[in-house]
């Protein structure tokens, strides 16, 4: 049977970052961007991912009261993104990009977290490990993918 996770798969996030950095460098060479744009995009991406990952993991892996309500809020927030609806006149550029980045990153990580086996946490508990240590390496590629998506959007939008 094919192993679902190996130590070498920990290299996947680094590989994603390297590819994304190369693509951004190529795009920056073709269409020059300032350091300020890169810094602003990086800040919006970091904030979006920091907000989105805990939300996605909680929605995908935990059963709790109010989950349906938060899921409905996520759906409504996805449809009312400042970029989508152009009501961002009073919102800053950072807020505008976080408003789009959080739903996108949440959906990407949520789909990846849902695809993990259901009894993963129980197996981790039997081994005396915390669920976080099991989730982190398995979700890292999708988190990096979501970050690359949000970052590229921000760079192209700010350019």
């Amino acid at each position: 049977m094919r192993p679902t996770h190996t130590a070498s798969s920990a290299r996947a996030p680094i590989l994603i970052l390297l590819i994304a950095a190369g693509l951004v460098a190529a795009a920056a060479y073709l269409h020059p961007v300032s350091v300020g744009v890169i810094a602003a995009a990086a800040a919006a991406t970091a904030a979006s991912v920091a907000f989105a990952v805990p939300l996605a993991v909680a929605l995908a892996r935990l059963t709790f009261e109010g989950r349906a309500m938060i899921f409905a809020l996520l759906v409504i927030a996805s449809a009312t993104s400042p970029v989508l609806l152009d009501h961002a006149a009073a919102t800053s550029a950072l807020g505008r990009h976080i408003g789009l980045g959080v739903p996108i990153a949440t959906w990407v990580v949520y789909l990846a977290a849902r695809a993990l086996p259901a009894n993963l946490e129980a197996a981790a508990a039997l081994d005396g490990r915390s669920a976080l240590r099991i989730w982190a390496p398995l979700l890292a590629p999708s988190v990096m993918g979501a970050a690359a998506l949000v970052f590229l959007y921000c760079v192209f939008d700010l350019r």
């Binding site: 809020l73 927030a77 009312t80 993104s81 919102t91 807020g95 959080v102």
Partner: peptide, 8 residues
């Protein structure tokens, strides 16, 4: 999400 998307 409330502050940036839904409330505006």
């Amino acid at each position: 999400l409330l502050g940036l998307n839904v409330v505006p």
